[in-house]
Design a protein around this nucleic acid. Sequence first.
DNA 1: TATTATTGTATCGTGTACGATTTAATCTTA
DNA 2: TAAGATTAAATCGTACACGATACAATAATA
Lengths: 144, 144
Amino acid sequence: MKDFLTLEKQLCFAIYQTSSEFTKLYTSVLQTFGLTYPQYLLLLALWEKDEVTVKELGQTLNLGTGTLTPMLTRMEANGWLRKERSKTDERNVLIFLQDKARKEKQAITNKIAEEILDCHIEIEEYIQLMRGLKGLQEKLKGRT
Amino acid sequence: MKDFLTLEKQLCFAIYQTSSEFTKLYTSVLQTFGLTYPQYLLLLALWEKDEVTVKELGQTLNLGTGTLTPMLTRMEANGWLRKERSKTDERNVLIFLQDKARKEKQAITNKIAEEILDCHIEIEEYIQLMRGLKGLQEKLKGRT
DNA sequence: TATTATTGTATCGTGTACGATTTAATCTTA
DNA sequence: TAAGATTAAATCGTACACGATACAATAATA
């Protein structure tokens, strides 16, 4: 049991700090484009599927409106996207990518890829890690 | 290259969301004790080594004073710890655990262990994952 | 159809995170 | 030892993150 707690403590720090390091790497690349890491994740989601409601986006990103609304407002102000209330159901707000987001996509992802490759991360290792993370996520979610 | 970007995207989300799920699990347990997850991590560090400077704590947790100072102020107000300016070098502020933190330690860690065990996480899997995270962390750090 | 329940966003309050600046204490070294 | 450099915290501004609440639009149903 003592060992278990030590292990648990180490996992806490490992996830917390890896996530933080990861964010920092991305931040350093993204600030050239005037983007934050969460904003980049939001763009990743929109590049995959455009013209979605705030709710849909929230489900994709695991975020509530308390986080999304102000974030979307900022990104709209910066010209990445456009918000428009749905005509058919005025409760919904639809998010549309702006030209800027479509045009810069390549430049952004290329730069990211370049930096990531610079870390010499082995693909196999990468996949292993992701599998582990997803496994843990499932178990964490299942509990709730 | 196309595949690489897809993979990279998946890792982004995997780390981001696992970290978020992890935080949520801990938050649900910790709120009973009036603690947040970052505050719990801070206590973990202090239980390991008490009577440290803000700077030391920052190195352990990978946090700057912009985050720590207000956090320590809140935790002092809640009776978890005490801040005291060092007599020998008045630039340093030393952090001391309060009785409350020592007394509640067992209750807190027991409750956490209980919840984690509830997730049926295999120890082997756990260790694998951590190894992967630490490996990634090293590579991310090395780049800077 | 008038009432009630539900749904989708927005808003608010609290608590991280982090870079940049400020301030006070200590250290260097000319 | 006095001027300048360095160091440790605090402070400030911006940006998440999240629970709780508010509010307007739509759906359900009596």
